[in-house]
Computed example of a mutant assay.
Amino acid sequence: MSSSYTGNVEPGGEPDVRELPGLRITKLSVGPMDNNAYLLECVSTGDLLLIDAANEAPRLLELVGGRPLSAVVTTHQHMDHWVALEEVVAATGARPLAHPDDAEGLPITTSPVVEGDRIPVGDCALEVIHLVGHTPGSIALLYRDPSGTPHLFTGDSLFPGGVGNTHDDPEAFNSLIGDVEHKLFDALPDDTWFYPGHGKDSTLGAERPSLPEWRARGW
Rank of each mutant, 00 (worst) to 15 (best):
L48D: 02
E171R: 01
H151V: 03
L131G: 10
P150Q: 10
V73T: 09
K200L: 10
A172Q: 04
F185I: 11
V43R: 14
D117S: 13
A94H: 03
L60E: 11
G164N: 08
L97N: 03
E181A: 09
V88N: 09
L23S: 09
M1A: 14
V73C: 04
H130M: 06
P68I: 05
L61P: 05
G12M: 14
D179C: 02
D190A: 10
L40W: 12
A91E: 14
L176M: 07
W214E: 11
L142G: 09
T110V: 12
R144E: 13
E87C: 01
E127T: 12
P112T: 05
S70E: 14
H76S: 15
D34W: 08
I139E: 04
D80E: 11
R59K: 14
P112V: 03
T110L: 00
A172R: 04
L141R: 06
T110H: 07
G22L: 06
P120I: 09
G105V: 01
C124E: 15
G12Q: 13
F194L: 06
V9M: 13
W193C: 07
T92G: 03
T6W: 13
G155P: 08
G161D: 02
A206R: 14
L184I: 04
R144C: 10
G116V: 10
S2A: 05
T154D: 06
A94E: 02
P209N: 15
G155K: 11
L60M: 12
G137Q: 07
T149S: 07
L23M: 12
H198M: 04
E127Y: 00
I108C: 08
E19I: 01
S202T: 04
K183P: 02
